[in-house]
């Protein structure tokens, strides 16, 4: 289940888009893929319910410019927390920009969401987009915070990354 369109060459490199192990939702993945392709990336979409080991292997094999994890089923926090150290444990991926976003938790509470985002950053993600828009990813990529380049700022376990940060939607919106 690898969605890799034959469109070459992608000037900005390859991005792996993937769900987490327990999440079956795919429309989010398809839209993120399109957005990234339109920004000039070559996208490999690993699809839903990706076991941690498969995701790690694909990332090691493809050496992507960036990894985008998307989850909306409410288990993204727990699954992501387990996944990040597994990705970072591979020397080949120690410096790869890895971001996560979507509806990551089951409980809708701004304080809890911010706490979870901070924990995810600590676990190894470079950015966390909780309840954010897909376009926030575009903005993040365009904002000049370099992806795949070292800025010299090192925070968290993966040194040499862009400044880790979280982006969250405002709470309690109907």
């Amino acid at each position: 289940m690898v969605n890799e369109p034959a469109r070459l060459p992608a000037p900005r490199g390859t991005v792996i888009v993937s769900s987490v192990a327990s999440d079956a939702h795919t429309w989010n993945l398809v839209l993120l893929q399109l957005l990234l392709e339109e920004m000039g990336y070559h996208v490999i979409n690993l699809g839903p319910c990706v076991p941690d080991a498969l995701l790690v292997e694909e990332c090691v094999l493809r050496q992507p410019t960036m990894v985008v994890i998307s989850s909306i089923n409410g288990h993204g926090y727990a699954d992501g927390l387990r996944l990040a150290p597994r990705l970072r444990a591979r020397p080949e991926l120690a410096a790869t920009p890895i971001v996560i976003g979507g509806k990551l938790g089951v409980v809708e509470d701004a304080t809890e969401r911010d706490r979870q985002s901070a924990v995810l950053l600590e676990a190894g993600f470079d950015a966390v987009f909780a309840d954010a828009h897909a376009t926030d990813l575009c903005r993040y990529l365009r904002s000049g915070e370099p992806v795949g380049q070292s800025t010299g700022t090192s925070v968290g376990p993966s040194a040499g990354q862009a400044v880790p940060r979280t982006v969250a939607g405002a709470p309690g919106r109907p």
Partner: peptide, 24 residues
């Protein structure tokens, strides 16, 4: 793109005439 709160223009990042969605 989501039920989130930021006032993002709907077409941001989704230009017209963008490429056909690839075979899945």
């Amino acid at each position: 793109l989501t039920g989130g709160s930021a006032a993002v223009p709907v077409q941001d990042g989704l230009p017209n005439g963008s490429p056909e969605i690839a075979r899945a």
